[in-house]
């Protein structure tokens, strides 16, 4: 059967909208479904068409963990040998004490809350998403673990890809122009840290919020660049 696509690239689509028929490759398996050789969108989003590859980038959504995702979590409770961590997903995730400490916990000498307490923020990786079992996190690796300082910005997790940009272009722009360290986690939490001063930090946060709001309008990177320059001029931060 001849394959054909009925939508244009970056067209706004709604659930149930016919995207194409024939032999097409689905790039986003959750937001596109096929029925009787036809392909439909399952969410409100932007069509992503490239040859015979079809996908829908969602504009609305929530975070659902995937193995390997980098997430920023907040500890909500301490158990006997693990912490329960909120990662903005339907279920809380588990971080085992042995993973953080690199050795078993010695219950006679130390308490879990000596290492991480309720309210602490951690940068972690999703290790396992079990069916019927809890999501587990790991903090093994450079840069992972407890976050001690910085500003935490929360955005809609569906808009995270736009903050990173194509091949990391948007993130690079933020890093270069605001001179801050920006860590973007897949669950929509963004850490802004080590800024030269408060003005740079505010510009970075305002830019991230602007990206979230205007994520679906083309020409985003150029607009953000312009916005940062304007803000810098307004605050008198421009030095040649």
């Amino acid at each position: 059967m001849e394959s054909s696509v009925y939508v244009q690239n970056r067209e706004l689509v709604t659930p149930g909208q016919l995207l194409g028929r024939g032999k097409l490759t689905i790039t986003t398996p959750i937001t596109v479904y096929s029925l009787d050789g036809k392909y439909y969108s399952a969410v409100v989003g932007l069509a992503d068409v490239e040859g015979d590859k079809i996908g829908v980038i969602p504009l609305e959504g929530f975070y659902y963990p995937k193995v390997g995702d980098v997430v920023i979590g907040i500890v909500v409770s301490t158990g006997t040998n693990s912490w329960e961590v909120d990662i903005r997903a339907p279920h809380t995730a588990i971080l085992y004490a042995s993973d953080l400490l690199g050795r078993p916990l010695n219950p006679g000498r130390e308490m879990l809350s000596d290492h991480l307490d309720v309210g602490d923020v951690i940068l972690a990786k999703v290790e396992n998403v079990g069916r019927g079992r809890a999501t587990t996190l790991t903090v093994k690796g450079k840069g992972f673990g407890k976050i001690n300082k910085g500003s935490l910005v929360e955005i809609d997790s569906a808009k995270v890809p736009r903050v990173i940009g194509k091949k990391g272009s948007m993130l690079q722009l933020l890093l270069n122009e605001c001179k801050c360290e920006v860590v973007v986690a897949q669950n929509g939490r963004i850490l802004v840290d080590n800024c030269p001063n408060n003005d740079f930090k505010e510009i970075a946060i305002m830019s991230i919020k602007k990206i979230e709001k205007e994520a679906h309008i083309p020409g985003l990177t150029d607009r953000i660049k312009e916005f940062i320059i304007k803000e810098k001029v307004r605050r008198g931060l421009f030095s040649g």
Binding site: T14, P15, Y33, F62
Partner: peptide
Amino acid sequence: LAEAGIPMKGL
């Protein structure tokens, strides 16, 4: 439901 981003086969 659609606005919540829950995958649906249609409205």
